[in-house]
Design a protein around this nucleic acid. Sequence first.
DNA 1: CCTCCACTGGAAACCTAGGCTC
DNA 2: GAGCCTAGGTTTCCAGTGGAGG
Length: 397
Amino acid sequence: MPEGIDEIFRRAKEGKPLFVNRDALSPEFVPSHLPFRDPQTRAVAQILAPILRGSKPSNLLLYGKTGTGKTAVANYVLAKLKAEANNPNLVLAYVNTRLADGEYRTLADFARHLDLSKGKQIPLTGLAVGEVVDRISENIRENKKKVVLVLDEIDYLVKLFGDDILYSFTRSGNRLSPGFLAIVGISNDLKFKEGLDPRVLSSMSEEELVFPPYTVDELREILTERAAVAFRPSVASPAAINLCAAMAGSEHGDARRAIDLLRIAGEVAERDGLHGIDDSCIRKASDKMEVDRVDEAIRSLPVQNKAILYAVSRFDGGTNTGELYLAYSGLCRRLGIETLTQRRLSGILGDLDLLGLVEASVVSKGRRGRTKKIRLLIGRDTLEKTLAEDPAFGAAG
DNA sequence: CCTCCACTGGAAACCTAGGCTC
DNA sequence: GAGCCTAGGTTTCCAGTGGAGG
């Protein structure tokens, strides 16, 4: 029984807004102090402090799983430094290499912070990577810039594109003088060092810090603190905060997830016209986060991946590569789009598996060969609803 | 124990769309 | 305009393979 529009409006008018300051629970929010990260904050500050005297700090590596406060600590210290320094030649740059997606764009993002002179700017594409490195180096040298570059998710960069950039930057000391470049690497993966050239490694890891996951107790306190700023009093009860902390903490002490969960639970409660967050809001919020993730993942897929996903959804109880390819080719013909090779389909299947949209595992059927056993991991109706938004699909079905 | 299927998945080449320099 | 460069996605080629059925 869908609730009437009147009911929704009535609730909206009656219910008081629960949020005072929603931003305090947004992912970008940098709080005025970072609980349980004092040692790390201090250490980072100490390592970077020489830059205030104009000398080059050590390169630094920060390790820890997602949501353990690495990025927050780095940005926090950077912000303080910027406020303290008051020196136009000091450049504090932050680049997330996964969002930048690629060697070239990581460099281009970095270059934006440097304010390159006209004619030396970095276009979207076209330059050799070496040329970009040269332009950046030249800019640092000529303007005597003191640069701290934070490379977030540096493991991603290294895993996919190797350590060439790091190599050229860590070994470029003299070429930059009298300016310099110090690198702060942030990694989710403790093993990422294994892929580094030993020379890069010794230079990059002059200093290292490990960020342990938050315990459930710590998460609870973080949430309590944020909730006090974000919500009206008594909106987020200790019990509600406990549940959020427990649900996010059971995974791996991920503070970001815990905060997202609390924010969305608050939005759910507000929408339902409640005066506070209860268990059911948090459960709904948790479900919503999952649906949103899937929705967004499907939406941002290229047409071909969508077509393959759709083809997978046509089979109840799973299928295999050969069978799927047949179905997929037929679908392409009907939709009037290009048909890719089976090899490519196999690769895309791997991508979809990585996204958690399908499960594709190799199985051997003995004499009858090996193949991938493929199964859709998401609801068929969600998929169809999301795919219908794509004009290329419109009336598929 | 051996065969042999129906693929897998690595490697390299190719294509497109961008941009550089000379 | 020629001759380079880049990123990404794709195709082509092919050696490799887990294990049920012989």
